[in-house]
Simulated assay, not measured.
Amino acid sequence: MSSASFAGRVVLVTGASSGLGAACVRRFAAAGASVYAAARDQARLAEVAASCAELPGEVAFGPLDVAVPASCREAVAAAVEVFGRLDVLVNNAGRHDFRLTAEVTEEQWAHDVAVNLGGAFFCSQAAIPHLLETAGNIVNVASVAGVVGEAYSAAYTAAKHGVVGLTKALAVEHVKAPLRVNCVCPGGMDTPQVHTIEVPEGADFELVMRISAARGFMSADSVAAVVAFLASDDAAAVHGSVQVVDHGHLAG
C-alpha cells in the first residue's frame, strides 16, 4: 500500500462499480480520501461502498452515465455537494466491445466514442473549475489501445487514442495553472469485463489476445496503485504523462 495520504481530499471515480474503478475506490479510501463513486449500477456501487466500511476514508456513491454529457455534469456537482470540494477526478469509465469494422453501425460507433472518450471530456470540463480551486488533478484511464492498434476495436481504439490526446491537450492548456493531468494506459486486466468478452464470428482470436503479455493478465489493484500515485503529491512533477502499465507487453 502506498504511503501517500489523501486525508482531507475528495476523489471522484467514474465507472466505479467493478474492475479498475472499484479497485481505485478502495485504494483511495484506504489512503483516507473521501471518495464519490459514480456509475450506472447502483446496487454494485453499494457493494463497493460496503467493502470500504472499515477503511479510513469515506465513500458515497451516485448515478452516472458517461455517454450523456448532462449526467457527467450532474455527477461532478453531486460529488462537490456531498463533500464540499473536489481534488481528484479519475476518468475510468469505459467499455470495450469487439466488432468487425465492416459491420459497425453508426449507432455503435457513436456510443463507443461517447462512452470511451466523451465521458472523459465532459467530466473533465465540469470538474476543472473545482480542481483549479484545490490545485487538484485528473487521471484519465485510456488503454494500451490508446497507443497501439487493437484488432476488431476500431471505435474503441480511436476513442482511447483520443483520451491520450485529450490528456496532452488539457496538460498544455493548464501548464501554467494549478492543475495536473495525466493518463494511464493499462494492458489486459483480470476484471469482470474480461470474462464476458464476446468475439465476433470469423475473428482471429490470436489477434484479440495480443493485449495479453507473456506474464498474463494484471490485477486491477496493481493498476489502481499507479492511478493513486499519479493523483498523489509524490507525482507533483508529473504532468501530461502517458503511463503504460501492461506487464511489459509493449516493451518488445
Rank of each mutant, 00 (worst) to 15 (best):
D65C: 11
V88D: 03
V139S: 03
A50G: 06
E107V: 12
A203V: 07
E133Y: 01
P69S: 12
N140D: 07
A177S: 14
D234H: 13
F121D: 06
R99L: 12
F205I: 15
T157Y: 03
D112E: 15
A67H: 09
A37N: 04
V144K: 00
S3F: 14
P186C: 10
A77G: 10
V13M: 09
V199Y: 10
L132A: 08
E58Y: 02
V82Y: 01
C52Q: 01
S18A: 15
E133K: 15
V223D: 05
A38Q: 09
R215A: 15
V184I: 11
H247E: 14
G136E: 03
R26P: 06
A213N: 05
S34P: 00
C72A: 11
A31F: 00
S232N: 08
E198G: 10
A114I: 04
V80M: 05
S241R: 11
V194A: 15
A159K: 06
A43P: 01
V184S: 04
P56H: 03
L117M: 12
A102V: 13
R95K: 13
E107W: 05
D246G: 00
S241P: 00
N92I: 09
V82M: 09
S222T: 14
E54R: 11
A23H: 08
G94Y: 01
A49K: 11
E103L: 13
G146P: 03
A120K: 08
V82A: 10
E173V: 05
V11T: 02
G94I: 09
E206Y: 04
V147M: 02
V11G: 00
E201T: 12
G21A: 07
N182K: 02
V199R: 03
S143T: 04
S3L: 15
A23V: 09
Q108D: 15
G149R: 12
E54C: 01
V148I: 15
Q243N: 14
A16V: 06
A228Y: 04
R180F: 05
A159E: 09
G146S: 04
H249A: 14
E150G: 12
V35R: 02
C72G: 07
E54Q: 14
A114D: 12
H195T: 08
S143V: 05
A159T: 13
A67D: 10
P192H: 04
A78Y: 01
